[in-house]
Nucleic acid binder design. Structure first.
Lengths: 106, 106
DNA sequence: AATTTGCGCAACCGAATAATTGCATATATA
DNA sequence: TATATATGCAATTATTCGGTTGCGCAAATT
């Protein structure tokens, strides 16, 4: 079973869950209220997020509050770092120009 | 068929393809040499990357050079932006402290 | 003590994925 | 012109995914 952050954030519901708990920790039930799918479906998503360490749990009686794990979120940002210069600089616009010239030559 | 950037980068081979063509444009055949899977398999990945606009193609005779599309890559970075403060500031460490205190209380 | 509530787990199902194989087409090369 | 090369597309298959349903358990509530 592949279980990495990239596979985890591939699902829109899981991305929404991350956005919600980024504001404040939430229980599965309170999370499920924000979606059309069942509580179990949401729980399954949480399980996947937990397995790849994107969320941590805080037990409180029979309730479980799920928190986001910033360190793991940063791993996604880290993967993007080498690509950053591509959109931050004007290299990409230069690429476009070169590409256009090349095509015109043909 | 869901075809967004997040689903696209979920696959490790596709992430590797993006990393390779970020350095310089490549043809499907030259890309396939970097992987164990077949040329067709790589082509299918490229198709997915093309469909979600992460790569652009430059035709040159019978060869097709695939380029990365920085604008689309940035969309991933944009999604991450709201989460940035979670790891860039010391809020996350503060969270850890509060969580520990809460657990001790019980 | 009995009932309700919050949760995880397992089984099941249809849809989507990733890979292979085989084929068709267009461009180079001999 | 015949052959080799670069590529895309379609069919097939095993696997994974996302969802539902039903269950069991522990903590709260009555």
């Amino acid at each position: 079973m592949r279980r990495d952050v990239f596979q985890a954030i591939a699902d829109p519901t899981r991305r929404a869950i991350l956005s919600l708990i980024a504001l404040h920790a939430m229980t599965p039930n309170s999370l499920a209220e924000h979606f059309d799918s069942s509580r179990q479906a949401v729980s399954k998503h949480i399980k996947i997020l937990t397995e790849c360490k994107l969320v941590k749990q805080e037990l409180s009686g029979r309730e479980i509050y799920y928190h986001i794990n910033p360190k793991k979120m940063k791993e996604i940002a880290d993967w993007l770092t080498p690509f950053q210069r591509l959109w931050e600089t004007r290299f990409n616009q230069l690429d476009d120009v070169l590409l256009t010239l090349k095509n015109k030559k043909k």
